[in-house]
């Protein structure tokens, strides 16, 4: 019996299964509400697959996992046409992308044409196989992962492709207390499967509600100013790991695109809805800004040379813009 009817109920249900990754849960829910996709960067073993599988199970939706490898082909993702000898006709076999929740594991291990096939499907929400186009399921959310530790033999995602992800979340290790809870919960023979707490219709309804969340004029100007700061970070400074102070403007090749402005608005609405509000606050914008901007700002070589954490530079830019 399905009892939950609000996004926060779904969040609670997921957090009872996934321990120590509140950022991943929030990112997945925000992507679901804002009708976008998430890029996760973090080492392996941080419950990314579990999170996706649990989300699909909690929504009674389909879940598919695609492991990206250098020999993967676009047809391995979107599907292909095969000749049926009995029928003497071509039949279409849909690929694993036809699911409500898709985990694209280590997306940077596949060559550019495969990445493009996935990202195009993410954008268009439909796939063309042979002469016919097929609409992807609704809701459809892709969670792509990248492993920052092992970059050998990988194909970096171009900025234009990264821009298609609504947000990029850096996944860190859980705290010792959370790890103890993980040990207690999962080091047993039988783990409890996630029960369904909402339906796909609920998700579509929540999405409509998120769309109606009010963003005040002051908040819109705040969002625009935040994005503009990434393009012209006037007097913003950041401190490197060695203690040196640097102008952020000297570290940036190009700032965030207008897609970042839209992403900030969508995500703020989603966060407000998760919090049970029908209006967004400056706190919503400030909380999701690092995730919406992280993958959309082009830092130059000086950032790495001077040992500056890109997130520290982004935080400095966000802090430099006064909230309304």
């Amino acid at each position: 019996m399905i009892v939950a009817r609000t996004p926060s109920d779904l969040s609670l249900a997921l957090s009872q299964t996934i321990v120590g990754q509140p950022g991943v849960i929030e990112a997945l829910l925000l992507a679901l509400l804002a009708n976008g996709h998430v890029l996760l960067e973090g080492p392996p073993g941080l419950a990314k697959t579990l999170a996706c599988r649990s989300l699909a199970a909690a929504l009674e939706g389909d879940f598919k996992r695609i492991q990206f490898t250098p020999d993967l082909l676009p047809s391995d993702i979107v599907g292909t046409r095969i000749f049926d000898q009995r029928e003497s006709a071509f039949a279409t076999v849909l690929g694993p992308i036809f699911a409500n929740v898709v985990l694209a594991d280590e997306i940077n291990r596949a060559p550019a044409k495969v990445q493009s096939a996935l990202l195009e499907a993410m954008q268009e929400r439909q796939v063309t196989i042979g002469p016919q186009s097929y609409a992807l399921p609704d809701p459809f959310v892709v969670m792509a992962t990248m492993n920052p530790l092992d970059s050998e033999g990988t194909y970096a995602l171009p900025i234009a492709q990264m821009d298609r992800f609504l947000m990029k979340v850096n996944v860190g290790y859980p705290s010792p207390e959370e790890e103890l809870r993980i040990l207690d919960r999962f080091a047993v023979a039988d783990t409890q499967p996630v029960r369904a707490v909402a339906t796909l219709d609920d998700v579509r309804r929540w999405r409509a509600q998120a769309h109606g969340v009010h963003i005040d004029e002051k908040l819109k100007r705040y969002i625009v100013e935040l994005v503009a700061t990434t393009r012209k970070a006037g007097g913003v400074t950041v401190v490197s790991n060695s203690g040196g102070t640097f102008r952020v403007a000297d570290l940036i090749d190009y700032g965030a695109s207008p897609r970042a402005t839209l992403a900030l608005a969508f995500l703020s609405r989603g966060r407000a809805l998760l919090d049970g509000r029908d209006f967004a606050l400056p706190d919503d914008v400030r909380a999701i800004a690092p995730h919406a901007l992280r993958h959309r700002i082009g830092f130059n070589y000086r950032l790495a040379v001077e040992g500056i954490n890109p997130d520290a530079a982004i935080e400095a830019m966000i802090a430099a813009v006064p909230a309304p």
């Binding site: 009010h214 005040d216 209006f279």
Partner: peptide, 11 residues
């Protein structure tokens, strides 16, 4: 007070 500053006009 935060709500009164940022909520929609009807509210």
């Amino acid at each position: 007070l935060e709500r009164s500053a940022f909520t929609y006009d009807d509210d």
